[in-house]
Design a protein around this nucleic acid. Structure first.
Lengths: 220, 220
DNA sequence: CGTTCGCTAGTTGCATACATCTAGTCGATG
DNA sequence: CATCGACTAGATGTATGCAACTAGCGAACG
């Protein structure tokens, strides 16, 4: 479970989150083993671990596929995140060090730049890093791993792609405002903004779905 | 990942949750393989899956141990559960069928009996079943699996053992009240009781810790 | 006497061979 | 001609052998 298996997990995760494998796509063991230059054993391990992270779905005797959540679940994910990450933001406001907050500030600032430049891929990465960092500051391994799964599922479905420019700007501002709340050591404020941030994302998602359905009707 | 591996997972989970292996205890692959009558491969699979469920902790090249959360994390777990299962109760109040509610009612009723009879082992089992059922009613696989991990960690540490009789009776009453809220189709009520239920459990936990520390001082 | 190096036993990680299951195709039969 | 069944290729599941790593002990050296 060292070199080979770890590398397999990292590479697979990156490829899945990077969109190289689309949701629902089959992930054959032998194919992956050849592509990664290892035997099937570490590949199996990797697939099991990714299943644990919620990135792939394994059916006995039938193999692994990239997970494909229904849209409804995705909305639920944002509701849960609104609560759980709200808690994390609250904790962070109470315990984070100045160095931690500075790091978060840096992420939020660069994120704002990249967003204004229209570099969506980088916005993804930074957004994930921002949330992962903040959740880590809550200082509870349980909380971090809990939310980790949820974030993966969301990134997977390219949530941000559905954002219209106005929503994206709101999102960027939320990130900065949360940093301000942390600096002010104000748990209530931090929690409230984080909740707003994620519920706003959820709303954008609903809007995107409505647009998708309308487009479908047009093309029908 | 069929017969052998599944059986291994089920047996190990039962033994861990049943307290046969205590937190921190080492879980050697060969030993388990012999005990379960299979080879090391399915045992390894099983350990990885249990790690995914949050029941064991695997360190590369050093093997698996039963997980051992610090008390602090346990409190965090109940905070998160209060939020997430609160959501689940809300959803259930909106969508559960009468048959579902009857099933939950049955569980809560038997649980009350067993609690009054002092049968704590059975109370554990029924309590876990009650929460698992209710979370399942929310109709979101994501939510169910998210909370599943959290519940495992809690059961693992024998939370209920720390309950004094008064707290246990409160807990039993909460279960029944939630059923009533579901029958009334009142999401707000259901959510509020569930939150109270879990925050009450968290408070009992804090009380138990205080008692433990006092006992330690006495024995010192 | 304490520290460090090397050895050894035991465990985990990886690769490979074999067993079992699934799905698709071809052919036989009503 | 349609349908059912057996066969076959390809995949996953399991077992086992070998390699690499960890930890613990003991002896040699400073």
């Amino acid at each position: 479970m060292t070199a080979a298996s770890d590398r397999a997990v990292d590479q697979l995760r990156e490829r899945i989150l990077g969109g190289e494998y689309v949701p629902g796509e089959r992930l054959g063991e032998v194919e992956l083993a050849e592509k990664l230059g290892v035997s099937r054993t570490p590949v199996r391990e990797a697939l099991r671990r990714l299943a644990a992270e919620g990135l792939v779905d394994i059916t006995p005797n039938k193999g692994a596929r990239v997970i494909d959540y229904p849209r409804q679940d995705l909305e639920k994910i944002f509701e849960i995140r609104a609560h759980v990450e709200g808690l994390a933001a609250r904790s962070a406001a109470e315990t984070a060090s100045m160095a931690d907050i500075d790091r978060l500030d840096e992420l939020a600032t660069v994120l704002k730049e990249r967003s204004e430049a229209g570099d969506l891929d980088e916005v993804y990465r930074l957004n994930a890093a921002y949330h992962a960092t903040l959740n880590g500051l809550a200082g509870s391994a349980v909380l971090t791993s809990t939310v980790g799964h949820l974030i993966h599922s969301a990134v997977l479905l390219r949530t941000l792609h559905s954002f219209d420019p106005a929503a994206r700007q709101r999102s960027v501002n939320h990130h900065l405002e949360i940093v301000a709340a942390l600096r002010a050591r104000d748990p209530d404020w931090a929690e409230a903004v984080m909740r707003a941030h994620l519920l706003s994302a959820r709303a954008s998602l609903l809007g995107a779905r409505r647009r998708d359905e309308e487009n479908l009707e047009e093309n029908a």
